[in-house]
Simulated scan of single mutants.
Amino acid sequence: MSPPSANSRTLTPVIAPDPAMVARFAGDLARVFADPKAPLLIAVSGGPDSVALLLLAREVLGERCVAATVDHGLRAEAADEARWVADLCAGIGVPHAILTGALPDRDGRTRNVSARARAFRYDLLRAYAETTGAAAIATAHHADDQVETVAMRLNRGAGLSGLAGVRSGNGVVIRPLLGWRRDELAGIVKVCGITPVDDPSNRDERFERARLRAALPTATWIDPVAWTRSAAALADAEEALAWTVERLWSERCVIEEGTVSMSPAGLPFELRRRLLGRCVTEIDPDANLRGSAVAQAVMALKRGATVTLGEALCQPSLDARDEPVWRFVRARPRRSS
């Protein structure tokens, strides 16, 4: 099957993926999607990665496989590409929907187009999953994507959460291909007789990910599958820290009459940092907290200084036993000049 052209979309029979590849995928899918009855929604852009995911999922799930393509309206070709995916799905017997809508002006506090498109895409997919009864949404992120993500976050000085990279499961979103390479997935699509959609933005070096994608193949010392295992280990560590913070929140923090009090004595820096961030967002839920700012606040409070994060005023004090207590209240509105 060829990709969309200006004049036609040709549907030809699709060859099934190699049984060994299907068996491998079945094992990977079972680790992240255990529901034996509910449908699984496959997010398909038309590129080789998502088409490979679609073909593998169709073989494993049969009628429980449903698909959707999001048209962000950002490229003129996107509508034709979405219809091409619809034709492909019709040819292999997979129910498919094209999801569209108005791209929001911002995502949270950012107007970044990529962030807005990503949030928009997941919002539409989650809503459609509910209408189909799908228990999860599968995306085609793979090992090479993981390397790109971790490398970008290293360049930004990310902490543990960022270096955990793309998670195999995040709410209703699952990513069963994190142990697969980009070339493997492209090979599946080629063997099945399909020429996938080519999105030129993937090579547009105005984007950081595209620049990394072009440079990483020359770094032959990088093992993307090993990086994926390391990212998974960091994700496990992140989960353990989040669990610890949840327990410490009930043990070390008290909320009363618009004030949050935190007892930091004896806690390692990272646990103080995470608890402080949660105290601030309890006072100011809309606070846009940067990790570096929270870390600086921890050090300032330890020195006895008062700091402001978002709309929260953070004040150090001592309790009756001369143990440190950090108190968080709503800061007074700044006077206009």
Rank of each mutant, 00 (worst) to 15 (best):
A231C: 01
R273I: 03
T149Q: 05
E184T: 04
L163P: 06
E77P: 01
K37L: 14
E238R: 08
G108D: 12
P104M: 08
H141M: 00
L55H: 08
P19I: 10
G179A: 05
R278N: 06
M1I: 01
S50F: 11
R290E: 01
L88A: 00
L216T: 01
W249H: 09
T259W: 02
A300P: 11
E59D: 12
V307A: 04
E130M: 15
G165W: 03
T306P: 05
G165L: 04
I92V: 13
G179D: 12
V307N: 07
T139H: 03
Y122I: 11
A115G: 04
S336Y: 06
I174E: 04
R58K: 13
V66L: 11
I222L: 15
P48T: 00
L185W: 02
A151S: 14
C253F: 00
R156K: 15
R83D: 08
S336D: 14
E251K: 09
S8M: 11
L275N: 01
A231V: 03
R167I: 00
R58Q: 15
D204S: 12
L241T: 13
T195F: 03
T306N: 09
Y128H: 11
Q296I: 03
D105P: 12
A86N: 04
D71P: 03
Q315I: 10
A297Q: 02
D284M: 07
P285E: 07
Q315A: 14
F25C: 00
D107T: 10
H142R: 02
L309E: 09
A233K: 09
R156E: 14
V150D: 03
I174H: 00
R153P: 04
S201I: 14
L40W: 07
G101D: 05
T131C: 01
G179S: 04
I174D: 01
S336A: 10
V189T: 00
C192E: 00
E238D: 09
D198L: 13
D284C: 06
E238K: 09
A97Q: 09
D284F: 07
A23T: 05
L289R: 04
R213E: 03
E311T: 13
G101H: 05
S114G: 14
F120E: 01
A240K: 13
P4L: 00
K302I: 15
A102V: 11
D123L: 11
G258A: 08
V245I: 10
E251R: 08
E239W: 07
R106H: 05
D319S: 08
E256R: 05
L61W: 09
L41Q: 00
R252K: 13
P316E: 14
I255Q: 12
